[in-house]
Design a protein around this nucleic acid. Sequence first.
RNA 1: CGGGGCGUAGCGCAGUUUGGCAGCGCACUUGGUUUGGGACCAAGGGGUCGCCGGUUCAAAUCCGGCCGCCCCGACCA
Length: 486
Amino acid sequence: MQKLGVNDKEFVKEVTPRSEDFSQWYLDLVLKTELMDYAPVKGCMAIRPYGYAIWENMQRLLDKRIKATGHKNAYFPLFIPESLLQKEAEHVEGFAPEVAMVTHGGNEKLAERLVVRPTSEAIICSMYAKWIQSWRDLPVLINQWCNVVRWEKNTRPFLRTSEFLWQEGHTVHSTDEEAEEETLKMLGVYKDFVENELAVPVISGLKTEKEKFAGALRTYSIEALMADGKALQAGTSHNLGQHFAKVFDIQFLDKDKQLKFAWQTSWGVSTRLIGAVIMVHGDDRGLRLPPQIAPIQVMVVPIITKKKKEEVLDRARNLLSDFGDTLRIEMDDREEYSPGWKFNEWEMKGVPLRLEVGPRDLEQGGVSAVRRDTGEKMFIADGELPLLLPSLLVDIQENLFRQARDFREKNTSRVDSYDQLKETIQEKRGFVRAFWCGEGRCEEEIKNETKATIRCIPFPEGDQETGLCCFCGKQHSKMVYFARAY
RNA sequence: CGGGGCGUAGCGCAGUUUGGCAGCGCACUUGGUUUGGGACCAAGGGGUCGCCGGUUCAAAUCCGGCCGCCCCGACCA
């Protein structure tokens, strides 16, 4: 391999530069790269093939992990009788403002309104109550991939849509300890998946009472930092305790002949992760997709000229047949577009690696390659391709993660006073580490004034440091992460 | 739900102030010449001007009502 420098030419401006207007950049990008399009109903989007392919790759990689930890997939109904949703007090209070209701079937008014699921605890628990009698029926480890609907006031493609796709795991256990273990195990699965497949580094920890899931005993989350300095909750795992078991009557006869309420968990990640990938890795030229989830990992652009057309196309086709079994490799041999147009197009669409095959490359017995993550150009001799292509993709994947982690480190601040907290959130954004006493009142006032929320209380590393609450000054406060969030 | 912006060809827009043939760029179709960082020439196709009503000889344009989308807030994966 011969390095040929870095491509730093300015690209054609179809997308608002990220530095100029992050929000507009994001919207331009998701539309221009054909990830999605707006649908006729507010907050609803069509996920186009290129966007859906990313989701399919995410599904495949996460589903494998979910199954490897002993879970099985199932499917539960879209409609939930209103009375079921209302059983758990906190749950209904949290979700009632944003549920869509079906009131009619055909022309007839329904006897009971049906909620279009905003999440499936209620319907699943009503089924679990029928399926669980004995300790021998436990644990129940079920996941489902589906759509849910939440009537949001403010929507944004992928980050917050009225309908979105996700997976939700719902498990039932015989003890508190086992449920807690499951909750943490799945949070760990999410962290592993998001960091290794999406190349997005995350902080994991416990949510505060105020931020926890409606109906949960405890919520844990993984939190990522976007390139504009705002945080995004990338996944949640809830220990539901016995809250739902008690109202849905999920009881089992234990080994000690006692009738007991079961312990439950639920956990989910959604198509929001596509938004995270865009906002963490994207740049002024467009998307930068991690190879693990990129619909196209390698795009071959044949440089077609009048004289050498067939030779060039033959070589390009050979590349597809040589590597088509091991890589997601495609060729853009459209003759109505110039090579330059294609370079920009596939860079905007975030394809990790581009191979150019032209008359010059044929003469030299190799291909030109350009990395999307660095813009680096190189010449690769034909014989080196089988080893270099996979290793370049690994390298790109790791580099994207490293860049994102470095960005997060640079944008994580440690503050000791409330004034510093306010100033940092205002000026620098990013994650801000500060001590917090655990009081909802402090949390609330900080949020009202700074718009920053406690993203999570991180898991203690070694001897946990404590200090004075940055707001009220109380001793033995814990270190938490603050940030403005999506 | 509050504040702001916008609805005219697939996309981006002009035209609305001062009523008078519905336009421009890109995209699309056909033919030709091209092709190593968004090629060029020529000829074409495409419209319920968001919807309903009113004023008028005449409405994209004026008036009234409604609907939708986007952005910023408050609420949320």
